[in-house]
Simulated assay, not measured.
Amino acid sequence: MVKWDRTAFLIGAAAGAAAAFLIQKQTSESMNVPPEKVLKKVKDTFKQNGPVDGSWIQMKPEQIDRNGFPALVYKGGISRPGETGNEQFEFSADAKTGTLLHVQPV
């Protein structure tokens, strides 16, 4: 009877470890970059061309259609001093990678 208990325990432990591995893999693949990190990355990109006065980002990503493919993006904005006053831009960045996808002057 002791041998069966040990075998059942080992089977249960192996099944639990396999389930934990699969759950961890799936959740890590579906996680988004935090919006604060995305905003910092965008600001750093803008700072290569001069100072940034202000910035904002939506905390919840949006689903958009990008060239026929769905994409989850954060939308935000940047303002910086320009030659004729303050320049403002809107941007969208990929929520999974933080990559800047689109910038548009406002």
Rank of each mutant, 00 (worst) to 15 (best):
19 A>E: 08
87 E>F: 07
62 E>R: 13
46 F>N: 01
48 Q>W: 09
97 T>V: 11
47 K>R: 12
47 K>W: 02
20 A>R: 04
83 E>W: 01
93 A>Y: 02
56 W>F: 11
14 A>W: 07
105 P>A: 10
30 S>D: 14
3 K>M: 15
53 D>E: 03
105 P>Q: 11
17 A>V: 14
24 Q>R: 13
64 I>A: 08
33 V>H: 06
24 Q>M: 13
49 N>L: 14
52 V>H: 03
98 G>L: 05
70 P>A: 13
79 S>K: 03
101 L>F: 07
53 D>M: 00
55 S>I: 00
47 K>G: 06
6 R>N: 10
15 A>F: 10
53 D>F: 00
61 P>N: 03
47 K>I: 02
7 T>F: 12
35 P>Y: 02
43 K>Q: 12
49 N>C: 07
18 A>F: 07
105 P>C: 04
29 E>W: 13
76 G>S: 02
100 L>I: 01
46 F>E: 01
60 K>G: 04
27 T>E: 07
73 V>Y: 05
16 G>T: 13
85 G>C: 06
37 K>D: 05
18 A>S: 09
27 T>N: 12
24 Q>H: 14
58 Q>C: 04
95 A>D: 04
55 S>N: 06
10 L>W: 10
102 H>E: 15
4 W>V: 14
72 L>Y: 01
52 V>C: 03
20 A>L: 14
60 K>Y: 04
79 S>I: 02
33 V>N: 01
36 E>N: 08
24 Q>V: 12
78 I>L: 04
54 G>L: 01
40 K>M: 10
61 P>S: 06
104 Q>W: 12
42 V>C: 02
104 Q>F: 13
87 E>L: 10
8 A>G: 11
24 Q>L: 14
74 Y>R: 04
58 Q>L: 07
36 E>A: 06
41 K>F: 07
21 F>T: 11
102 H>S: 13
38 V>I: 01
59 M>H: 06
74 Y>G: 03
101 L>S: 05
3 K>R: 15
37 K>H: 08
84 T>R: 13
62 E>H: 08
5 D>L: 14
94 D>F: 02
